Amino acid sequence: MKKMELKDKVVLVTGGSAGLGAEICYAAAAKGAIVVTCARRINLIGKVKERCEELSGKPAYAFQLDVADPESVAACLEKVATEVGPVDILVNNAGFGIFENFADFNPKDITRMFEVNVLGMMVLTQQVVIQMLEDKRCGHVINIASMAGKMATPKSTVYSATKFAVLGFSNALRLELKPANIHVTTVNPGPIQTEFFDKADPSGQYLASLGNHVLDPQKLAARIVRSMEHPVREINRPGYMEVAARFYTLFPAIGDFLAGGIFNKK
């Protein structure tokens, strides 16, 4: 497949204020892309925008966005269309998790997690895809899912459910958009060293228990941006968790043993 040059391509990243989202913005900017970083925290995305401009030598953009609010999505996309232009690559990175026993879960947190991780992502993606189809342009949608969507573990009931939904949505969307030459990539990472865990696990015990098995967001971002140049179906990291996820599907009893034991660090 011919390499897609990222120079002057418009790359929109949700959840782009920090962590993996910010690193994706920087890696894309370094390749010459026009980066649009979107998140709720306007003070942080402004700094990401400035860094992207330094890396790319061209304008970058920062727009406030709450993906769970359809009005915010519409307003953000209107600004992108007016001030930037058509989106070539959409990275759905916004999301959060809470690791807690399901019996103790606050119902409001369940609703909010689905609104952010699934429903809002779908609303935004639909609007971007409609424009891609109308323009008859080659495009790319990259959805940040999770290994939790392939292999659920204790205390990840709601988070895993949202990521299973992202995987199902992405797999069907990939087939629908293939004839239009619009690619869909699903990224399934294990634990990443980001502030995601400030909310997911405030105690810090989970990350501490993983030691060197935590992913580096900069390295993962570089891999994701390479997939913008050479689209792939999935990116699964780390490799041993992908093997475990395959085991989980092929050998359910062994899968439950692994998910509830070796890979249960929460």
Rank of each mutant, 00 (worst) to 15 (best):
G139D: 02
G139T: 03
G139L: 01
H140S: 14
H140Q: 15
H140A: 12
V141D: 02
V141C: 00
I142L: 13
I142S: 07
I142H: 09
N143I: 04
I144D: 12
I144Y: 13
I144A: 14
I144W: 15
I144H: 10
I144L: 15
A145I: 08
A145H: 10
A145Q: 05
A145G: 12
A145D: 07
A145Y: 04
S146I: 01
S146R: 10
S146T: 08
S146D: 11
M147Y: 13
A148W: 04
G149L: 03
G149H: 02
G149F: 01
G149I: 03
G149P: 07
K150N: 08
K150D: 04
K150H: 08
M151E: 04
M151I: 02
A152K: 04
A152F: 00
A152W: 01
T153V: 10
T153R: 13
T153N: 01
P154K: 04
P154C: 05
P154V: 01
P154D: 08
K155Y: 04
K155L: 00
K155V: 00
S156P: 03
S156T: 14
S156Y: 03
V158C: 06
V158K: 08
V158T: 15
Y159P: 02
S160R: 04
A161H: 14
A161I: 15
A161Y: 13
T162C: 09
T162F: 03
K163I: 13
K163P: 09
K163Q: 13
K163C: 07
F164W: 10
A165C: 11
A165T: 12
A165P: 10
V166G: 02
V166A: 11
V166R: 07
V166K: 11
V166N: 07
L167Y: 01
L167V: 07
G168H: 03
F169K: 11
F169R: 13
F169L: 10
F169S: 11
F169D: 05
S170C: 01
S170L: 07
N171V: 01
N171T: 02
N171W: 06
A172L: 08
A172T: 14
A172Y: 10
A172F: 08
L173Y: 02
L173M: 07
L173D: 03
L173Q: 07
R174P: 02
R174L: 09
R174G: 09
L175K: 15
L175A: 15
L175M: 14
L175G: 05
L175H: 10
E176G: 00
E176N: 00
L177F: 07
L177S: 07
L177N: 08
L177M: 09
L177Q: 10
L177T: 12
K178D: 09
K178E: 14
P179W: 05
P179Y: 05
P179S: 05
A180G: 00
A180R: 08
N181I: 00
N181D: 14
N181A: 12
I182S: 02
H183L: 00
H183Q: 12
H183Y: 10
V184H: 05
V184K: 14
V184E: 06
T185W: 13
T185L: 14
T185A: 14
T185E: 11
T186I: 08
T186P: 02
T186M: 13
V187R: 13
N188P: 03
N188C: 15
P189T: 12
G190F: 12
G190K: 12
P191E: 07
P191F: 10
P191N: 12
I192N: 04
I192S: 08
Q193L: 15
Q193A: 15
Q193G: 07
Q193H: 15
T194N: 11
E195I: 01
